[in-house]
Design a protein around this nucleic acid. Structure first.
Lengths: 346, 346
DNA sequence: ATGAAAGCGCTAACAC
DNA sequence: GTGTTAGCGCTTTCAT
């Protein structure tokens, strides 16, 4: 039989009484914000232990005007959210630093711009001290909005204006250029790119890097990160009069769907078509052929973002953090040069 | 240039002053907990709007002793978390009901039993009014622990003792039995099962159902839900003197890894080996062959769990909810009978 | 229909 | 090294 739910929750006053001191002493014994003799400290801890006292988070929040929590508002379509390998790994990184700091994470999923604003206002109303802004758009309205709400913040991505917040950036252009080089090295000349939604900063940057590297946007097309769009864009590309011999996808989900489609119409990978993704999904290394991709270490980015946000909340000035966390994972899906089919080689 | 972070946040007192009423009136105008004349209501709303007043969540929490938040503590290994299609979809379902109720979701990832207890205590200290208990184990310690902390709760899964909380159950046995039937119907007699960790209630139930259906546990083996274990268990099964002709995996991640492995050693799916998963991962329908699996509607389960938790918090009695949300998705990875290889037929 | 005032459980000046 | 005393910004009796 489980114990009774505690009859009446003990307060700091009860602990103080039991230890024969005042509330202030109890408070300071725990916070260490002023020296307390070892003797009384011991009595206080014993009393607290005895009463199973848990300091009230809301009372503390009210007294200090600090929520001791940070927030993340997810604006993604739930379907896309579910197909996302980035998010859980990112959260894991964030939590790993929050846990030590005794800071909580408040999550909110918003389906519309209005809901999103409501969510940020809720955060600002004392649920969170700051927020991490993800999935940065170009000229993202959330940066000034969040700032004006008086929240602290950190931006994951390269904000395209002077930012009041720390930006945690990754170099998305280089791995794309490297990937194109890698494919060229295997003899490919018609290399396509299925981008993510181009209003995302990172999608945009990558597609720009792609265009710069291949020198044309003829084989550039836009997906939505979902498996369905990976298949559809692939079908369209392969139906062209001059189909690509290699495709770089903006994420592994689309790449895997594309790979499966290519196979289903009788192409062999990488012999007929080379396939590369982005993200290094947990499955990618275990497919056959294993998928060439770009690992982007979401967990590390989560750790760094959370650390930066806590620093911002602690009053440190905003700064720019450039993360070097992308790694090309060359695997079998791009390793063999394709057999040029009735084409004048290169 | 973004606006200044609000110089001094207005309080309910400021609104009251501006509207020429008292704090009580402002409070009631918004909560509707007592009749206020239309005229003053209008003045109050105008003042609030003017001052951009956001009621303080922590002050309200302290005054009402309600956090207006619920919690989820994730005990999963981050690596497994990341390979998990269940979680983001579940969250999406949870949030869809929380948003309407103006309740927040507090998330915590705990890496050890100790961290997990700390996390629940943090929730109980006023961060959350109740929690959803996921990934239920047999004789799960968290149920009595959470109850004794005075938290409200809901359990996702079948708790194996009298539960003080509402349990949201799904019938995991039936789809497994149906899957075995389906494979038998295609002529399979050596059907293996790569289970999830057997200390999870649902893994256990499914594997029991599997054993009951096939009448033996010779071909039962245990994975960890990760792609690597899917590959390894598959390799072991296929290396046996009498390898299975069909494998049912406890999730799609392991199934996809298994499928890829089988192919990499020259087997064709489903001709040589039929493959089935569980979960209906977003990729599964887009593979070739498309993966037969069991859809389990995590979003719906999230919605129902959150609704049940809010009911519990509102004081309604615990009850048992049996959800009918599993559906066999029969696809190509199991559709053709295998060619019996030097074996005396059916 | 509205006002006045007493808390909710902490923290933080300010004393001594 | 410890006690006293105000609040933090709400909600909610109790009055009127």
């Amino acid at each position: 039989m489980p114990q009774q739910p505690s009859p009446a929750k003990p307060t700091i006053g009860d602990v103080a009484a039991k230890a024969g001191v005042t509330k202030a002493t109890v408070s300071h014994a725990f916070s260490g914000r002023r020296p307390i003799s070892e003797a009384t400290k011991a009595r206080v801890f014993a009393a607290a232990e005895d009463l199973q006292w848990l300091p009230s988070a809301s009372a503390r929040a009210l007294a200090t005007s600090r929520a001791n929590a940070i927030g993340i508002v997810l604006a993604r379509d739930p379907a896309i959210l579910a197909s996302d390998t980035f998010f859980p790994a990112f959260i894991a990184g964030v939590e790993s630093v929050l846990a030590d700091a005794e800071v909580a994470l408040v999550l909110q999923v918003a389906g519309s711009r209005e809901a999103e604003e409501r969510a940020y206002r809720a955060m600002a109303s004392g649920r969170a001290d700051g927020v991490i802004i993800l999935d940065l758009h170009r000229a993202d309205w959330r940066v000034p909005y969040v700032h004006q709400l008086g929240l602290h913040g950190v931006v994951l991505g390269a904000y395209d204006a002077p930012s009041p917040f720390t930006c945690v950036r990754t170099d998305d252009a280089t791995p794309m250029a490297e990937m194109v080089d890698h494919l060229r090295g295997h003899g490919h000349t018609r290399i396509a790119h299925v981008a993510g939604p181009l209003d995302y900063v990172h999608s945009h940057v990558r597609s720009q890097a792609y265009v710069a590297a291949v020198g044309s946007d003829d084989l550039l097309t836009e997906g939505d990160f979902g498996a369905g769009s990976g298949r559809d864009r692939t079908a369209e590309l392969l139906a062209r009069p001059e189909p690509p011999t290699a495709i770089i996808y903006a994420n592994d989900t689309m790449a895997i769907a594309g790979l499966s489609y290519a196979r289903s119409i009788g192409l062999s990978v990488p012999a007929d078509l080379a396939i590369a993704g982005f993200d290094d999904d947990h499955l990618s290394a275990h497919l056959s052929p294993a998928l060439t991709t770009v690992a982007t270490d979401p967990t590390e980015r989560g750790r760094v973002s959370a650390t930066a946000l806590l620093a911002d909340i602690a009053g440190e000035p905003a700064r720019n953090i450039e993360l070097d966390c992308t790694r090309l994972q060359l695997r079998d899906s791009t390793r063999t040069a394709p057999i040029p089919q009735g084409e004048e080689g290169r």
